[in-house]
């Protein structure tokens, strides 16, 4: 049986890991290598890198950063978001050491390129990330480049569904807060068979189990909380009440 994943997200800004709060405030953590090395050692199910200033500054993906991470070396699956604009970028991101690539604004800016990327690297290797928020008028997508929110058109996502494998739903306003992820964000996708990764303010509480219980949710991602102590991942995994048989057993210190 395929297991639901407990992933780690790492926010990178100007080549340094930061703690991000609601996409507004950034607190420094440090160099990326020790952060990723720890996550790999702890046996997280996947590492998701959000390199947040690459698109904003039109820098393209940071291949040197990806190579530096895979040179540590790590043997944990890696997904990378940051400045990917076309299929050539995506291929180079993969050859540099990331198994999956994530696009966000490209979805609105140039959906044709999403198809081209998918044709080159396969839709299994392509994820779509959307910072979202919900209010009484519906679900809104936040464009972090122009800092504006727009009502999300589900049909646009469904049109592109054959070209990506998972949708990362980011409750960006809850990012950096404990147990604030708005579970209402999942309702829009309940009628549609879209595999989801949830991120932003999930925290260690009953909420994480509730999110994992949703049939479309394949992974939940933790970010800032993982920086608060040694073996934090083990602590989080133990505390999740969701069916243990649907989660991967802890492999830390496991002998093969």
């Amino acid at each position: 049986m395929i297991k639901k994943r407990i992933s780690a997200s790492v926010i990178v800004k100007s080549n340094r890991v930061v703690q991000s709060i609601s996409y507004r405030k950034y607190l420094p953590i440090g160099s990326i290598e020790p952060v990723v090395e720890n996550l790999d050692r702890w046996g997280v199910d996947e590492i998701i890198i959000f390199d947040i200033d690459r698109s904003k500054n039109s820098l393209g993906p940071n291949y040197d950063l990806i190579k530096a991470i895979s040179s540590i070396p790590i043997s944990t699956p890696l997904a990378y978001a940051g400045g990917i604009n076309n299929y050539k970028d995506a291929i180079r991101v993969i050859s540099s050491g990331s198994e999956r690539v994530i696009v966000d604004n490209l979805f609105f800016k140039n959906p044709k390129n999403i198809k081209n990327i998918s044709n080159a690297i396969g839709s299994q290797a392509l994820l779509l990330a959307l910072p979202l928020t919900i209010n009484k008028n519906g679900i809104f997508h936040y464009n972090y480049l122009n800092k504006k929110s727009k009502l999300l058109d589900l049909h646009k996502i469904l049109d592109l569904k054959p070209y990506f494998s998972e949708l990362i739903i980011i409750d960006y306003l809850s990012q950096g807060f404990d147990s604030k992820f708005d579970i209402g964000l999942l309702e829009m996708f309940n009628e549609n068979d879209i595999d989801l990764v949830c991120y932003g303010g999930i925290g260690v509480s009953e909420l994480s189990s509730q999110i994992l219980a949703n049939k479309n949710v394949k992974s939940i991602a933790f970010g800032n909380i993982l920086n608060y102590g040694e073996l934090k991942f083990q602590e989080i995994k133990k505390s999740i009440k969701y069916s243990k048989k649907n989660l991967r057993r802890s492999i830390f210190r496991e002998k093969i």
Binding site: M1, I2, K3, P77, Q124, E166, D195
Partner: peptide
């Protein structure tokens, strides 16, 4: 899509990979 961690079951328990029977590996396809 079959993405994430899943276990493998060996058909021949005497295969040289027998010790990996029921171990979990990362899939993405």
């Amino acid at each position: 899509f079959h993405i994430g961690w899943n276990s493998i079951q060996l058909k021949n328990k005497n295969h040289f990979l027998k010790r990996f029977n029921n171990h979990e590996f990362f899939f993405n396809h």
